[in-house]
Each structure stands twice: as C-alpha cells, then as structure tokens.
Amino acid sequence: MIKLVDVEKYYANKFIKTWVLRNINLTIHEGDFVSIMGPSGAGKSTLLHIIGMLDDMSGGEYYFMDEPVHKLNEKKRTAFHQQYIGFVFQAYHLIDELTVYENLETPLLYKKVKTAERKSMIADMLDRFNIVAKKDLFPNQLSGGQQQLVAVARALIINPKIILADEPTGNLNSKQGLEIMEMLKQLNKEGTTIIQVTHDENKAAFGNRIIHLADGYVEKEEQHG
C-alpha cells in the first residue's frame, strides 16, 4: 500500500543542510498497524507528515497505492486526503471556530457529499463515539479526551483506508489514552491501516510492527504477532 524508496528530507539553511530523514526504505501493507518510535528529533513526525503528504520530501520515491506521490500535483494529493487518509494529532487540531458537528462535517463538505447523506453519516459517527450531546459545543468547551475523540471521529468519517496518528495519546491521561488506543486497535481489526508515532513503549506495542528511528535513519524494525 505504501512504499518508500530512499526517501530523504533536509532543510537547506544558507550553506548548511540539516538532515531530518535519510535513506528511508519502508513498505507498509494494507491492514498493518505500524508504530514509529524514537527519541525527540529522530524525524518521526516528519516521516508521518511525508507519508500523509503534508510535507514535501527532498529526495527519493514514494508510492501510495502504486501512485508515485513524488510526481503528483497538489490537486491529486488533495483527492487522496479526501478519500483515503485520516489524521489524528497529539494537539487534536480541531477548528476552534466550528462546533463538534461542524468539525465533523468539514471533510464531507470538501468531499462534496450530499446533504442528506452527510447528515446521516455525522449522526452515525456521533452515535458511535457517544458524543451526540456534545454536537453543538465548541472544542474549547470539551476536555482533552473528548476533543481527541472528536478528532478520531473526524478522521474516520470519510471511511479512510489509512489513519495517520501523531502521538494521539500524548496529551491525554492514561485512562483516556488507553481508550483511544483500544479504538485504534479495533479499527485495525476491521481492516483500516494505521500508522502511529509514539515514544511510549506500551502504546507502541499495540501495533504489529514497530519501526525505530534515530537521527533520521531506520535503526531497526520489530515484528509482533
């Protein structure tokens, strides 16, 4: 599903190149649950952003569902975002000015889903995450865990093939964190591919593959179950 060949990323600052990622070769199959681990500054988030097409790479090749992302234009990438990729962030990243309901609605609007269908999809999602009562609240009226729940709901509403989660539990207490991880595990069982970035061993263990990054290189890979 995802294939990275010799991917590298650096920031050119006058005469000095600051390397963030080097020599990344990685294949992720449909149904994988991949955890990316590593110390601060190892390039975990950057890798995730490149996979999510939120950031450009400096070199190498990237195939998403056999399409060469490194050659695609903005429009095509946008289409991928609309159809296949859902994001969950550590800082939730909900739109502050929109209510829960409207936040869930936004991806569907971009996907041009018809009104009636949209309403039922949002209703389903609110039901499933048990947040019907919160639908007219703004993000700052919710607790962190509730916000992350909405964020996951928003990622799922387009029924994505893959969810990219950047430290999804980093801002949550352990109980809330566990709930979110269980949810991701459940989604994975139902067939969604998941890539998460984390530096928590326990959380990483939810995945079937753990990739360790250090100084921009893949240090090692573990396989589970």
Binding site: T78, I85, F87, H93, D96, E97, Y110, R154
Partner: peptide
Amino acid sequence: AKEVGIRKTVGSSQFK
C-alpha cells in the same frame, strides 16, 4: 495557519 493546516489534512485544496 492552524486552521489552514487542518483544512488541508481533511481534504481542502489550496484553491478552495
């Protein structure tokens, strides 16, 4: 900018 980022991740094009 945050809003822009989020909108892009949920599928908005630059044009929109």
